[in-house]
């Protein structure tokens, strides 16, 4: 396969970026998208050019490290997969592929396609946890009876890998699907109910402080989420927040 890549290049957060064209040849259909970028970078290194910086780690869709907006879609054209799970057979020889970083003021570009997603870490630190006594008296979580629907919903919310595709997909760069998933993950379980009020108020406060936009219910976040996190989590976030604010 031969492809024309249009890749966002930006030296750092202070410099302006732009799209740069690269031609890649001898790409096998069974290669992953990231391997294709590895080959591009190998070529750039051999010619003395700066390789394209991009995030990746596990390359099996569970760590949430890879990002990239490929032809306008976060994590590429396939539904329910991350960029590292995308293969070149999804494209045809001669295609032009646009590759951009996740866009959002709260996700500033570090270099090229790498963005700083530590805003998510700070939101998580503000309340995305449960305070469990681990001094030796810990009750086995499996010993707590939990209705099956609640357990299923908590597990579904916990599938969020915090990659930030929801922010990248939303026209407002809203982080409400991520925050909704993290709040729902705990609010459905008895262990999470003790700190439920503080959690939702603090996480929403931190989310707003980070400069994410407002949710206008376009549904793009759910449609582009590689883990299929449901909009129900945003609705649950709204309910939990209002409950926490109204019932003091």
């Amino acid at each position: 396969m031969e492809l024309l890549l249009k890749i966002w290049r930006q030296a750092n957060g202070q410099k302006k970026g732009s799209m740069v064209n690269y031609e890649v040849k001898n790409i096998e259909p069974d290669m992953s998208f990231l391997e294709m970028l590895d080959i591009l970078n190998q070529g750039l290194i051999e010619t003395g050019e700066e390789p394209v910086a991009f995030d990746h780690d596990c390359r099996e869709g569970i760590c949430g490290m890879c990002s990239l907006v490929i032809n306008g879609s976060p994590h590429g054209p396939d539904r329910g997969t991350t960029t590292c799970q995308l293969h070149m057979r999804r494209f045809k020889s001669g295609d032009t592929i646009y590759i951009e970083p996740f866009r959002g003021t709260a996700f500033p570009v570090v270099k090229d396609l790498v963005v700083d997603r530590s805003a998510f870490d700070r939101i998580q630190q503000s309340g995305g946890y449960v305070s469990i006594n681990t001094s030796g008296n810990t009750v086995d979580a499996n010993a707590a009876p939990i209705p099956k629907p609640d357990a299923d919903e908590a597990f579904n919310a916990a599938a969020c890998i915090g990659c930030g595709a929801c922010v990248a997909a939303c026209k407002n760069s809203s982080a409400m699907l991520f925050v909704g998933a993290k709040v729902s993950q705990y609010s459905r379980l008895p262990q999470g109910k003790v700190e439920a009020k503080e959690r939702v108020i603090n996480m929403v406060k931190q989310m707003d402080k980070e400069g994410f936009g407002n949710c206008t219910n376009t549904g793009a976040c759910e449609a582009h989420c590689p883990k299929g996190i449901s909009l129900e989590n945003i609705l649950n976030l709204n309910r939990e927040y209002l409950k926490a604010k109204i019932i003091k």
Partner: peptide
């Protein structure tokens, strides 16, 4: 506020949401 949350727009956009929304 929403415009401020994304100062740099995408060069190529292909979002899965309705025009109305």
């Amino acid at each position: 506020e929403n415009r401020a949350a994304r100062k740099q727009k995408y060069v190529y956009s292909n979002t899965r949401s309705s025009w109305i929304s």
